[in-house]
Design a protein around this nucleic acid. Structure first.
Lengths: 270, 270
DNA sequence: CGACGTGTTGAAGGAGCTCAATCTAAGTGG
DNA sequence: CCACTTAGATTGAGCTCCTTCAACACGTCG
């Protein structure tokens, strides 16, 4: 799959999760013009209201998308990890409806908006992959609506931690049960629609029950099955089953199915 | 714009909201093969877990998308009105991650999945319009996440009522301040993440303040400005500003801007 | 050292939930 | 035309999950 050290390789890899791309198409993705940029923790990638001139890919680090609501309250609407096309939405739409900000120092690649559009229009398969990617984003949004609307704090937090385990493992940034998560309790609260105080108490409940622990920026899940039960987590909405089989993720995907079904405690880190 | 009585005309009209389409492209949209179907209130258009074979367009009536959470709780993640392509997501993704159900008797047009894909792949401009449509859907999802996460019941309900006023007027199904909304208080609760009891009380607060009234399936907004204030509603996230100007919506859009800014009570129905 | 960001803990209050009864309007069958 | 049914709206009382406010602990970094 061409040079795995190419900065856009993780993004291409993510697109290949959704569709088959010919070698030509793959080369065209990697040939996209981009300008690499280093950001410090807390920097904005896009600001709500901007008219973006480029799409940004997160090469390393973490970022989140958020909206400001009412009297300065913040709602995080998505968490992005390395490889994610952070801003396809804002790049195609003509005005950013939300801000994107880094949670850690990060590298991004800015791709001119027009180059993305041209690639999409000239290569239907790439267009489909990118469209697909935005549809999966929307599916995650829907699951978050369900979480905020109908799950308790404990369930919502558990669900969130499951989701990030899956997504980070897919992105090669950790494993299902052990991964980096550089979010403060305040950040978690803004993602879950809770106060940081209540996040603190809910995290403590989970660790008191031996289900998981968060130490600094690291999450250790000791009992995935129970965490998934608490959160009512089922990975369907991430659409990983849709993936073209034969890739390197097959074993993981099957394993995920198992994990969702059976108890498989991992207490080695407790 | 060709035959305005064509069943797919409202859908084409909606796509034209996002991009310019050549006469050829427009004809191609209207030439999509479809099978018209009558549904009774409560019928499913798609069921979570299905592998859909077609995309459905809502020709008349109302529908909602929902997920089942935990112990039989329902979360409505979107409300669809006539003209909406209800199921582009599910048609492109390989498995439906949520169900779609009618709120009223309704007409839908089922378009074979392959016909949609072929149209998109052969006509970049149409592809862009449809993609754009799904991106706006996602933007609405994000706003809903913010509502569920950070708005009080009163604010969330107000915001929801504003959104529907705008969307229904855009769809030619009423006006900003007076439109049909065939949702029970139970439905509203499932959309807002509240109980029907609390929806009842919140609606009563709004009408006690003279802001709006819901009588049967009809919403009457007496004071748009106050409703928008209560909900912290700003129409940016619907991306109407993005619309190509010159269409028949221009006056309305400008009017909407005004409405968002100034008080313009409409008590004629109080 | 002091300041600041983050995590932790307690106590009190409130927004929204649960449970349950009553009311209304629109069928539906006789 | 009326008894009966049913879906939905309405209202009250008590409860609970989560918030608010406030204090304190801890580590890092100037």
């Amino acid at each position: 799959m061409s040079d795995p050290r190419h900065p856009l390789a993780p993004t291409l890899h993510k697109l290949l999760r959704w569709t088959v791309l010919s070698p030509d198409d793959q080369a065209a993705v990697l040939d996209l013009p981009f300008r690499q940029r280093s950001l410090r923790r807390g920097d904005h990638v896009v600001r709500e209201g901007d008219t973006p001139t480029h799409a940004s890919v997160l090469l390393s680090g973490f970022a989140y998308r958020h909206k400001l609501v009412g009297a300065g309250d913040r709602q995080i609407v998505a968490v992005q990890v390395a490889g994610d096309i952070v801003d396809l939405q804002n790049a195609l739409l003509r005005m950013a409806d939300h801000s994107v900000q880094t949670m850690t120092d990060a590298q991004v690649a800015d791709i001119p908006r027009e180059a993305v559009r041209r690639l999409a229009m000239e290569r239907p398969a790439v267009c489909e992959a990118m469209w697909y990617d935005t549809l999966v984003d929307a599916s995650v949004h829907r699951e978050w609506i369900a979480s905020r609307g109908r799950r308790s704090a404990l369930a919502a937090l558990s669900h969130f931690l499951c989701e990030l385990g899956v997504r980070l493992q897919m992105a090669g940034q950790g494993t299902l049960t052990r991964y980096p998560l550089p979010m403060t309790q305040e950040d978690l609260g803004d993602a879950l629609g809770l106060t940081s105080v209540h996040v603190n108490r809910t995290l403590k409940t989970l660790s008191a029950r031996g289900i998981m622990q968060k130490r600094g920026p690291s999450v250790f899940i000791h009992d995935w099955k129970r965490l998934a039960d608490e959160g009512g987590f089922s990975p369907h909405y991430l659409h990983l089953q849709d993936a073209q089989r034969g890739g390197p993720d097959e074993v993981f995907l099957d394993g995920l199915q198992d994990l969702a079904r059976q108890t498989r405690p991992d207490r080695s880190l407790a």
